[in-house]
């Protein structure tokens, strides 16, 4: 049972693949990606997440786009992405946008730091690690940072035909943030993460036995 793996999409039972760096294993029957092994998978995720948090703050602090027409001027920060919907009484829509663009990505970043920092540097597990890890993996697909980036580029095109716009520091921070977060999440392989967690648990048990 230990050295077997089953495909998530077709349930085929296979031997646990042994991978070299940068190799991927696909299911023999349906072609599903079973496992990928990037270099320093989890360390890389942690460093990209740290960068993402800083860039996320910057995107919230600096204005992203400002619009100007005949003396009237208005600017927008990431934080205001959903705010206008609330102002117009569309609170449900505002809540949805707030969740998928701001709340979920931020929560996921904090939870990943909470999990990985003690694991990598102190070989220790924080309380509720299992629950938090399951939460991170299930929330991951609901964070739509990359979709928002494309939407932003689309709206800039639309805006230039209507008013004079100016791009602020915020938008560059947001583009960098989006790329860093994607890189971090792409390197967070489920299989690798849980195997690493198992290793640390074994380590802890051995330590207790010695004492």
């Amino acid at each position: 049972m230990r050295n077997l793996i089953a495909c998530e999409h077709c349930d085929l039972l296979m031997e646990y693949p042994v991978l070299n760096h940068a190799q991927q294993a696909h299911c023999l029957r349906c072609g599903n990606l079973l496992m990928s092994r990037p270099k320093h998978s989890l360390q890389l995720t942690l460093s990209f997440i740290t960068a993402s948090i800083i860039l996320f703050m910057a995107a919230n602090f600096f204005p992203m786009i400002s619009a100007e027409e005949a003396g009237f001027k208005n600017q927008m920060r990431l934080l205001e992405a959903a705010y206008a919907f609330f102002a117009y009484g569309e609170w449900l829509l505002g809540f949805i946008v707030f969740c998928v663009v701001l709340l979920l990505p931020f929560t996921i970043m904090l939870l990943i730091v909470y999990l990985l920092l003690p694991m990598i540097f102190y070989r220790r597990l924080m309380p509720k690690t299992n629950f938090v890890a399951r939460l991170v993996f299930s929330l991951q697909k609901w964070s739509m940072v990359d979709v928002y980036l494309v939407a932003m580029l689309a709206s800039i095109t639309k805006l230039t035909s209507m008013v004079t716009i100016e791009l602020g520091v915020g938008i560059w921070a947001y583009i960098a943030f989006s790329l860093c977060l994607s890189a971090a999440l792409a390197n967070l392989d489920k299989q690798r993460f849980w195997r690493y967690l198992d290793k640390i648990k074994c380590h802890q048990i051995l330590k207790q036995q010695k004492m």
């Binding site: 786009i65 400002s66 619009a67 027409e69 005949a70 009237f72 001027k73 208005n74 600017q75 927008m76 205001e80 992405a81 959903a82 705010y83 206008a84 919907f85 117009y88 829509l93 949805i96 946008v97 998928v100 663009v101 739509m144 979709v147 928002y148 494309v150 939407a151 932003m152 689309a154 709206s155 639309k158 805006l159 209507m162 008013v163 716009i165």
Partner: peptide, 20 residues
């Protein structure tokens, strides 16, 4: 979701008094 986000960005940005 792109279209919803485009609306969100336009609504947030284009509040230029009585003009637009």
């Amino acid at each position: 979701m792109i279209d919803v986000f485009v609306v969100a960005i336009l609504v947030a940005l284009l509040q230029l008094g009585g003009l637009l």
